[in-house]
Simulated assay, not measured.
Amino acid sequence: MTGKSPTITLNNGVQMPALGLGVYQSTPQETAEAVATALREGYRLIDTAAAYFNEKEVGEGIIRSGIDREDVFVTTKLWLTDYGYDTTLRAFDTSLANLGVEYLDLYLLHWPVPASFDKTVASYRAAEKLLADGRVRAIGVSNHNADHLHRLIDRTGVVPAVNQVELHPYFAQRALRGAAAGLGVVTQAWSPLGGVNQYWEDGRNAAKNPLAHPTVTGIAARYGKTPAQVVLRWHLENGLSAIPKSVRPHRIAENFDVFDFALTADEVAAIDAIDTGVRGGPDPDTVGAGDFS
């Protein structure tokens, strides 16, 4: 084990580990061992989604790790084709069965779908029922901008605990983070290392890859850390949660080995300054189920 993640207190008092393992684009064959490896290394947050088609393997990995279920913070997400009140409740049951658990720690709506926001609201009301019934410890959203958050809260009166969004040094989302904090919503970063920019690119291209930016590599050299470790530390220094994805044991361990150093305020500001404002992933304002078919 390389350390222990600090926790973030959600707006309902639940403690969530700040650093976790994401399994987006992890194949079912890779996922179980990646989860088991992460939990043995000290991770205590595992993030998946119905749309990742690896919930069963996440559950298998938790069992394989030997870590007690109550010591693991498990997140999954509702997919767009299941939006609506009754369909959300059924989809939740399916996710729970796939994971092999009796409750979830966090349940997120995967996208806001503003073009059919009534269904988004209905799904969130179903999530509220799951929360009230004790079947999930916290509920939240993913890929919501500030307007989406305000619209959802205005319609339901219930503030999401978490908003999980694309966030990395090249797309730092400072305005959204500020708006979320003002509402009492924790911001969690998917693609925290900027990998969304390079899935189809040469990873050495500094224009696409924040890990290759000289500001990041310079700080990494100063501390004897990798650029990825510096960027994850930047997330933590900014009070964010991050869920880096990897299936390689050495990378899983490396991404968690970030608790023995800290960045100065000047170093955080220097990384803040490399923000391009350019999103690498889909635009939440336009995403619908048909975009992923």
Score class of each variant (00 low, 15 high):
Tyr52Gln: 05
Glu201Gln: 13
Lys208Asp: 04
Asn54Thr: 13
Asp86Met: 13
Phe73Val: 15
Gly140Lys: 07
Ser246Ile: 04
Tyr103Val: 14
Leu211His: 01
Gly178Arg: 11
Trp234Lys: 00
Val23Cys: 01
Arg90His: 11
Thr81Leu: 07
Lys208Tyr: 02
Lys77Ala: 08
Ala49Arg: 08
Ala32Ser: 14
Val113Arg: 07
Val72Trp: 07
Pro192Gly: 04
Asn54Ser: 12
Glu237Asn: 01
Ile8Val: 15
Gly182Val: 12
Ile46Gln: 01
Leu109Lys: 06
Val74Cys: 10
Asn11Glu: 05
Gly140Phe: 08
Gly184Gln: 05
Leu99Arg: 12
Thr286Glu: 05
Ile46His: 02
Thr276Pro: 03
His168Val: 10
Arg125Lys: 15
Glu201His: 11
Ala207Ile: 03
Asn205Gly: 07
Ser293Phe: 04
Leu240Arg: 05
Ala269Gly: 00
Pro160Ile: 06
Val158Ile: 15
Ala175Pro: 08
Phe261Ile: 03
Leu211Trp: 02
Ser142His: 05
Val186His: 09
Gln188Ser: 14
Ala220Asn: 02
Pro214Lys: 00
Ala273Glu: 02
Pro17Trp: 04
Asp82Thr: 08
Thr156Phe: 10
Val136Tyr: 06
Leu183Trp: 06
Trp200Asn: 13
Thr76Gln: 14
Thr81Trp: 00
Ala138Glu: 05
Arg233His: 07
Gly182Asn: 11
Thr226Glu: 00
Gly288Val: 12
Glu166Met: 09
Thr94Met: 12
Gln29Phe: 09
Leu263Met: 06
Ala127Tyr: 11
Thr88Ile: 14
Ser95Phe: 09
Ala175Tyr: 14
Ala38Ile: 09
Asp266Met: 07
Tyr52Asn: 04
His148Leu: 12
Ser142Ala: 13
Thr2His: 00
Lys119Ile: 10
Leu232Lys: 03
Ala289Gly: 01
Thr7Tyr: 10
Ala38Phe: 09
Lys119Thr: 14
Asp118Leu: 09
Asn163Arg: 10
Val158Asp: 07
Val121Phe: 12
Gly277Lys: 08
Thr81Phe: 02
Gly42Pro: 09
Ser123Trp: 09
Lys4Pro: 00
Tyr85Pro: 08
Phe117Ser: 11
Leu21Phe: 05
Ala172Ile: 05
Lys225Asp: 05
Gln198Leu: 07
Glu237Asp: 08
Ile243Tyr: 00
Ala122Asp: 15
Gln15Ala: 12
Ile243Pro: 01
Val101Ile: 15
Thr27Phe: 02
Lys225Tyr: 03
Val268Ile: 07
Glu201Ala: 15
Ser191Ala: 15
Asp93His: 10
Ile62Cys: 12
Pro28Leu: 12
Leu99Gln: 14
Arg44Trp: 06
Val287Asn: 02
Ala36Phe: 09
Arg248Ile: 14
Arg151Asp: 15
Lys208Ile: 03
Ala270Asn: 03
Phe53Ser: 11
Gly277Ala: 10
Leu211Val: 00
Val113Thr: 13
Leu21His: 02
Leu106Asp: 06
Leu232Asn: 04
Thr7Met: 01
Pro284Phe: 06
Glu237Cys: 01
Asp71Thr: 14
Gly13Trp: 00
Leu96Ser: 10
Ala115Thr: 15
Leu21Ser: 01
Thr276Val: 08
Thr31Pro: 02
Ala253Gln: 01
Arg174Met: 11
Lys77Trp: 10
Ser293Thr: 07
Ala206Cys: 04
Arg137Trp: 11
Leu109Tyr: 04
Ala262Gly: 03
Ala146Pro: 13
Thr215Gln: 01
Ile252Pro: 02
